[in-house]
Amino acid sequence: MIANKTQRCLALGAGLLLVAVLSYGQKPALPEFNKLPDWSGVWQMMGGTVFDRATQTGQGGSTTHGVRIHPPYNAEWEAIYQKNLALRDQDRLPDVITNCGVPVGFPRIMNLPDVYEFVIRPEEFWILTENGPNVMRVYTDGRAVLAPEERWGTYTGDSAGHWEGDTLVFQTVALKGSRDGDSILDRTGAVLSDAAQATTRMRRINDTTIESQMVIEDAKAFTKPWTVTKQFRRLPTGTRVYDYGCAENNRNPVDAATGRTLTLGPDGKPLEDREKD
């Protein structure tokens, strides 16, 4: 009787050990590909490129004088934004993407003209933008975002998430924000600090619309979290995405000294300073 009990205990222990050994290093089960939502096709952001139209004041687009948005900035960062707005009004707020080659980063990647593709695989999700072009990767294979001690700020940061039914939920950390003066949210001059991070929920709300809701937190710049929602409209089936070599014929580089966007003539020299007869 005692021997039987001992044998059963040994067998149970061996079984548990076997399970532990087999599962060591194994990733959590991925969702089945055919059970993931279909976001195929070509998509276009709805509305203009004012980053948060819900808080926009003033009529017009992001470069129109008087137009601004209202992130929950503290006094220090509101002053930074006011300075950028003043530069915008003088047409001297440089947009680094005008020089080509600099990624727009997150969250501005949700705020681009031209078209988008959203690529879903069980282990990863990609946002591909024609403009730029830009790529954003979101790991959905069970890994977490980088630990704080492993992070350094980049344009698009580090993102990881999971599927909750048809909703992709992901966290983004390790953003550089406006630290190096080469990342804005829109051409009003709204910016984030390098402490910004976000939780994004993306889902297809109907046959022709994908919605992305971002809750952005910024311990340096904000007094509270900021929720921004962007929507993308599906373009007709068969729509093509084309090559976008931004530097191919960029006749509008930014003059680093003045922040002005130049217009180059066919000879490559700025047209701005030529007085017409």
Binding site: T49, G61, T63, D91, T98, R187, N250, N252
Partner: peptide
């Protein structure tokens, strides 16, 4: 937008 790559303020 006609000038997505830059502002068009010129």
């Amino acid at each position: 937008p006609a000038v997505a790559h830059h502002s068009g303020a010129e």
